Simulated scan of single mutants.
Amino acid sequence: MAAAVDMVQRRAVEPDWGRLLNDAIARWVADALGRAPIRPDDYARALTHGSTAHATYERLEFLGDRVLGLAMAEWLYERFPAESEGALSKRFNALVTGAVCADVARAIGVVPHLRLGKQARDDGAGDSDNVLGDVMEALIGAFYLDHGHDAARDLVRRLWGTRIDAQVRVPRHPKSALQEWAAANNRRPPEYSIVDKSGPGHAPRFTVRATIGRLASAEATGTSKQEAETAAALALLAQLGG
């Protein structure tokens, strides 16, 4: 009997770690996103990677990607009323990449709150652009479900504000710019080849070489083939003075 009473007493004083963890996330969400969560479980899910045994961010990422896209398209349409669809698309594509979403996630302090399995953490998933970009979109999805479209639109404008302000001119994609440089200088079109691929599935690393005939080449690394190609094109442009 005494043992049973002791067990009940110990349970009464033991902290509810799950509740405390969600309370910590709720406080962080209120600070980082500007509004206290009504549905804290959604934010916890948005921070949960597939390497855990719990519900993950994937469905919220799917939703948040669309919310971000609509908010950004609406913003650019208003902000640059004289620009063509092509110019707006270039601005849009430069602002919603996984790397940009990951930078926003780092800026608001996502990393310490990620829920990762041990192997994923050991593999560096906590600093992976792929993971952080997905989580940022999932957080936007959770915020949208919590507060609606107008609040989610305002959140995107606040978090991306300095980035859109930095786009004084329509950005040129480095691969397009390198292609144009080659054509203007009567050179062969640039070619891209994968030099190396490493890392686990959730945090791959690609090294790509960009070349223009025998004239010049440059290598760069990224978390996807496309990202590495873009970085290699940018490096080659800098080498060529383009």
Rank of each mutant, 00 (worst) to 15 (best):
Y57W: 05
Q9F: 11
I194Y: 05
T230G: 00
H54W: 15
A26V: 10
L159V: 11
T48D: 11
L114G: 03
A177M: 09
A138C: 07
G126K: 07
H49I: 06
T48L: 00
I164A: 00
L68Y: 02
D42R: 11
A182W: 08
Q167G: 00
I212Q: 06
P189K: 11
A71Q: 10
Y144P: 03
G69Q: 14
S224I: 00
A30H: 07
A53S: 13
Y77F: 13
E58G: 07
W17R: 12
A220L: 04
T162C: 02
I194W: 05
G201M: 02
P81A: 01
R66K: 13
A125F: 01
E137K: 13
Q9Y: 05
A151D: 10
R19L: 14
V208I: 13
R10F: 03
A24N: 10
G199V: 01
R205D: 00
A235E: 11
I194H: 02
I194N: 03
V5W: 11
Y192K: 05
Y144W: 15
L155Y: 10
V170F: 04
G161M: 06
G213M: 10
H202D: 03
R19K: 15
R79M: 12
P200W: 03
G148E: 09
R157G: 01
R205A: 08
N186D: 15
G161H: 15
Q167T: 04
V104R: 06
M1W: 04
H113G: 03
R172V: 06
R19F: 08
A46W: 04
E78W: 06
Q239D: 09
S84Q: 12
W75S: 08
T211C: 09
V67T: 08
L237W: 04
D41N: 13
Y43A: 05
R35K: 15
R10A: 10
A166Y: 00
A46D: 04
T223Q: 13
R19I: 11
R163L: 00
G133F: 10
T211Y: 04
S176A: 14
A125Y: 02
Y144I: 05
A102G: 04
D165W: 00
S89P: 00
G199S: 07
Y57S: 11
